[in-house]
Design a binder for these strands. Structure first.
Lengths: 216, 216
DNA sequence: CGCTGTGAATGTATTCACAGCG
DNA sequence: CGCTGTGAATACATTCACAGCG
């Protein structure tokens, strides 16, 4: 009864994002030597309210102590479990252009157990190069690469036109999750997890907020 | 009475994202020579339902023709107005590392009127270099750079530790919108628009969905 | 007593269903 | 008639408020 149970209800996407946020705050608190934290304090740091935090956590169990709050280290461990981060995840990067290189060089996610184990591209001038010892391989061999490395997640950093075909192929080859940076909506089979990040759409969110408003 | 009015109610973030999506689909339809589209067809292409589309649009006006649907070209124009994309937006890029370079090289958003007009960094070895003719300038001169270029949006591609200070400074210098790629939550004054993109949090969204599930 | 955990209440987003226009 | 535009209904997310435990 110590492990985190399956959630009692469907948990919203925003709730999951908040859990990621809480986790980062708890890391900071732990580094500062803070041992216990209340939902009120955590809410203040996360920019939300205490009830939201207690509700988010309550989907997965009861991790606090009435009267005192949450033990920082323990709550952090619980959230890691909830997010599926108690093990490491192997990632295949598809697309060795500028964006692919930036993602590869971005060491932040290594801290959370995400490891790029393979790089794929179609460009013959890229294939055979290596980044930090990882050989760039032809997309055509992706099935073998997935099998050999055991990668379960794919990060798509290809041009828009290539994205859907790449994702189809990865899905067939057994990929379990896809993070798509290509500026094109892609479809995946039901059982494959998907998120898309589109820089232009984020910029449009800003200009929507500013539209009409005058400068100053 | 032809222009797009201020929305009748507070419009949700997800609704704004969908409008961006509709816009892309309408572009495709227009390129295919399609002149008219119904909410049913658009919903099919966008992966949502017809009522959602009509509701999203109804916040801003009545753009369709009963009995036939929406004129593709006109609706596209309306959505551009809604999103604030009928003019171009000057963007300052802060951080000339890998990620900054990838964003700079990413030409997709140029098509929608976003233009990087300045690049800032603190690294002396970067300062003075130029990317496609745009000189990398010291962050210390950011007030002058903003004034001289008229940039209204900032894309933050700095390390986490630098992000808040950079954003504070930009805000003081009159920036109107911030797109933050640094892996750190930042605060901005009320009147500044903000979006944050955090790759690790997106990956955690995937592992949350997969946690517990077995492979295969 | 001070806090959590949670059912109930509120607020928000999505979907339904149909009146009404082209 | 076929579709949009929209109030009403439903579903969902957040916040309240308090019982109950440490």
């Amino acid at each position: 009864m110590k492990t985190v149970a399956a959630p009692k209800a469907r948990v919203s996407d925003s709730s999951v994002r908040r859990l990621s946020r809480y986790h980062r705050i708890l890391e900071d608190l732990e580094n500062q030597g803070c041992e216990v934290v209340s939902s009120a304090r955590l809410a203040e740091l996360a920019g939300t309210n205490p009830a939201q935090i207690r509700k988010d956590l309550s989907y997965f169990g009861a991790f606090g102590k009435r009267g005192s709050g949450y033990r920082v280290h323990e709550l952090r461990a619980r959230i890691l479990e909830i997010l599926g981060l108690t093990r490491s995840w192997k990632v295949v990067l598809v697309g060795a252009g500028n964006l692919g290189h930036a993602i590869f060089s971005y060491k932040e996610f290594t801290r959370y157990g995400f490891h790029i184990v393979a790089i794929l591209d179609t460009d013959p001038s890229k294939i055979g190069q290596a980044w930090e010892g990882i050989r760039i391989r032809p997309l055509d061999g992706c099935e073998e690469v997935l099998a050999a490395t055991g990668a379960e997640l794919a990060v798509i950093a290809t041009p828009a036109a290539a994205a859907q075909a790449v994702v189809d192929r990865m899905a067939k080859a057994g990929i379990r999750g896809v993070l798509n940076f290509a500026p094109r909506e892609v479809e995946v089979p039901r059982k494959v997890a998907l998120r898309t990040v589109n820089i232009t759409i984020e910029l449009e969110g800003l200009t929507f907020d500013l539209r009409g408003r005058n400068e100053g």
